[in-house]
Nucleic acid binder design. Structure first.
Lengths: 241, 241
DNA sequence: GACAAGCAGATTGTCGACAATCTAACAAGA
DNA sequence: TCTTGTTAGATTGTCGACAATCTGCTTGTC
C-alpha cells in the first residue's frame, strides 16, 4: 500500500484566478502604485464579469495591497518611505521570533528545503531574472516562518511579504541593474544550519538592513518627486470598525 | 477663521454595513465557530442582494475570521487550542515591540486616552456587560498599538484582535460568570505611565498570561468534546498563492 | 444487503442590466 | 473673475436570474 499524499486540487473559481493574476500584476510592478483599477476595462480584458472581479479586489484590499474608496474606485496602494520603514522594523521583530520558534524544529527536511530555496535564488541570479530573484529570496526568507509552526505568525509574514515584494519590485524597476552578484544569502543559510541561535538572529537583522537601507533611500527620493503632484487627498479609510 | 478639522464621513455602502454586522455577530459569538453562513438566508434577512453580502464575506475571509471552501460554503473559523496558543505567543512579542515604540511618544494626550479607556473597562465591569467588557479591554490594550505610529504593526494587531475577541467571547459564553471584579488593568495602566519600560513590558506579558491560561484550558477541554463530531475534513485552503 | 449510477434539491459562482454616485465641463449670476 | 447651479458622461454599487457544482436520496443491479 503506497503512502501517497495527494495535494489539494487547484481552486477552480474564476475569483481565485483573478486574485492570482491581479496580485502578480501588482507585485511585479505592472500595475503602478496609486494607479486606479477600472473594473469595466479589466473585466473585459479578462473576459469575466464584474462580480468575481470585484470579489477578488475585496480580497486584495484586505490583503493590504489595494485600497478602496466608495464610489471613487480601487487603487494600488501608495508606497511611502514610512510604510517601508514600518514594515522593515516589524520584520526585524518577527524574524527574531520566527528563528526562535523554528530553532528547535530544524531537521533534515528543513536543511534540504533550505538548500533547495537557496539554489533557486542563485539560479534566478544567474538568469538575471530580477523579478524571480525577489520572489525566490523572499521564499528563502519565508522558510523559517513556514517551519515555525505558528499559523498566525505565518499569516502575518505572508501579508508583510506582499508589501515587501511590491516595494522591492518597485525598486528594481527604477534602477534596472541586476542585484549584487555575490551571494548575500550564503551566511544566512550557514548560520541557520549552525548551533548559535543568537548569531542567526543577529545576522537576520543585519542582512535585512542591507537590502532595506537602499530601498529606503530610493523611496525617500521618490517622495520628493511625488509630493508636488499628489493625488487623492481623501482619507482612504477602508477598515472602519 | 476657525481651524476646524472635519473627520471623513461614514462609508455609506451596504457592503460596509454588512461587514460590520457580520463581524459583530461573529465576535460576540452569535455565530458559532464552524457554523456555515447561508448566503440566501442571510441576504433575505438583511434585505440585501447576495452581491454585497458576498463581497463582505470575502473581506472577512481575508480578515481571518471566516474561511471559504469553493462550492461548499463559507464558515466561521474553527477555534483550536493551538490557534489560541499561537495568537497568544505572537501577541507577547508584538506587545513588547509596541511598548518600545510607544514609550518615547507618550504625552498628555496619551495618558488622558489611557485613563478614558481604562474607565470604559471599569464601567463595563460595573454594568456586568461581559461582551462590552471584552471589547473595552481590548481597546485599552490596543492604545499602545495606535500610538506606536507604525501602520503595519497596527494592522497586524487589529487582525489579531479580531480573533482574540472571538476567543474571549466564546469563553465567556460558555462560563457565564462575570469576570474578576478586582481591576486587573490597574497595574498595567500605572506602569505605562511610569518610567520603567522594561517593567511595563514584563507586566504586559504576565498580565496576558493570566487571561490566556484560563482561555487555553477551556479551549483544550472543548477540543475533547468536539473531536468526535468533527465536520468538514477538507483542507480549507483559502490563501493559495 | 451492498454497491454503483443517476436523479432531484439546494447552494454557490457568474452574468448582464439597472440604480446611485461621482467628476468635470459648462452656463448663469453677483 | 469668482462663485454657484446644472447637466451629461463615466464609474461604482446593487439587483435578480441563470449556470455550475455539491449533497443526499432513490433506484437498479448483483
Amino acid at each position: 500500500m503506497g503512502k501517497l499524499d495527494f495535494s489539494p486540487i487547484a481552486d477552480t473559481t474564476r475569483r481565485a484566478e483573478i486574485v492570482a493574476l491581479l496580485r502578480r500584476a501588482i507585485l511585479t510592478g505592472q500595475l503602478e502604485p496609486g494607479q486606479k483599477l477600472n473594473e469595466l476595462r479589466i473585466a473585459e480584458q479578462m473576459r469575466v464579469s464584474r462580480a468575481p472581479l470585484r470579489e477578488a479586489m475585496r480580497e486584495l484590499v484586505q490583503e493590504g495591497i489595494l485600497t478602496s474608496i466608495p464610489y471613487a474606485g480601487t487603487f494600488v496602494i501608495d508606497v511611502t518611505a514610512k510604510d517601508i520603514d514600518d514594515a522593515y522594523s516589524l520584520n526585524k521583530v518577527l524574524d527574531e521570533f520566527a528563528i526562535e520558534l523554528t530553532w528547535k524544529l530544524r531537521d533534515e527536511r528543513f536543511f534540504d528545503e533550505l538548500d533547495r530555496r537557496h539554489e533557486a535564488v542563485k539560479q534566478a541570479t544567474r538568469d538575471l531574472d530580477t523579478t524571480r530573484q525577489i520572489e525566490t529570496a523572499l521564499q528563502l526568507h519565508g522558510l523559517i516562518y513556514e517551519w515555525a509552526d505558528n499559523s498566525v505568525l505565518l499569516e502575518t509574514w505572508q501579508r508583510l511579504t506582499s508589501r515587501l515584494q511590491m516595494y522591492f519590485a518597485l525598486h528594481q524597476h527604477a534602477r534596472n541593474e541586476p542585484v549584487p552578484a555575490e551571494d548575500v544569502h550564503e551566511t544566512y543559510v550557514r548560520l541557520l544550519k549552525g548551533q548559535d541561535m543568537r548569531a542567526a538572529q543577529r545576522h537576520a537583522r543585519e542582512h535585512i538592513d542591507l537590502d532595506f537601507e537602499e530601498l529606503l533611500a530610493y523611496a525617500r527620493s521618490l517622495e520628493q518627486r511625488t509630493s508636488k503632484g499628489g493625488r487623492a487627498d481623501r482619507a482612504g479609510r477602508t477598515n472602519s470598525a
